[in-house]
Simulated assay, not measured.
Amino acid sequence: MEQREVLGPVEGAVGYVLKQAAVALRSALDAALRPLHLTVTQYACLELLGQRPGLSNAELARGVFVTRQSMNVVLRGLEERGLVARPAIAPHGRELPTELTRAGREILESASAAVLEVQTTMCTGLTADRQQALLETLGVCIRNLSADA
């Protein structure tokens, strides 16, 4: 019987270390956004809308990596806080384009600054070239895993 190769120590496994980094990043983002009463998902939604106004629920869900049902709950909460606005009736089709309100843009400015601070801390000690190489390397990993999806 042929012996299969196994992973080895998890500390040397790219996937394991990547998961550690993701958990550390999520924890730091949670802490940075907590004073603004935002979750990471809410922030990501606001950031996407700040960069691409008028996205639909489905487009936001894909961009934030949640289901459409979950995004609907997120948007409802942001609407109740007066941070986003959606028309009552779809201008065309069934899509309700979402826009930031003035309050939404103001909180996004604070949240974006807090997230940038977390990113800066995370990348301390990495030159701009190493940060670019990291982005490119992660992009390759994403494409490799998405090829079969």
Rank of each mutant, 00 (worst) to 15 (best):
S70E: 07
E47Q: 15
Q3F: 05
T121D: 13
A90L: 02
A13P: 05
P9E: 07
G139P: 03
A90P: 07
L83A: 01
L100N: 11
G63L: 02
C45R: 08
P87C: 06
V74L: 03
R26A: 10
E95M: 01
G139H: 12
R81Q: 14
G63V: 03
S70K: 08
Q42F: 06
A28K: 03
C45E: 11
L49R: 03
L46H: 04
V66N: 04
P35G: 05
A61D: 07
P53Y: 00
G139Y: 06
L33F: 09
V74W: 04
I89A: 14
L55Q: 10
S112Y: 04
T120I: 00
V66C: 03
A103L: 08
Q132A: 15
V40M: 04
R143E: 14
R94T: 08
A113G: 06
T101W: 08
R4C: 06
Q3C: 01
G15K: 02
R143I: 13
A147Y: 06
G104D: 03
S27N: 04
A22Q: 12
Q69D: 14
L116R: 12
N57C: 06
R26H: 12
R52P: 00
R102H: 12
E47G: 10
L29K: 07
T67P: 02
L36S: 02
E80R: 08
E106D: 11
T98P: 04
E2Y: 12
R34L: 03
H37C: 05
I107M: 01
T121N: 11
L96K: 14
L96Y: 10
L145V: 15
A21E: 13
E136Y: 11
L49V: 01
K19E: 14
E95D: 09
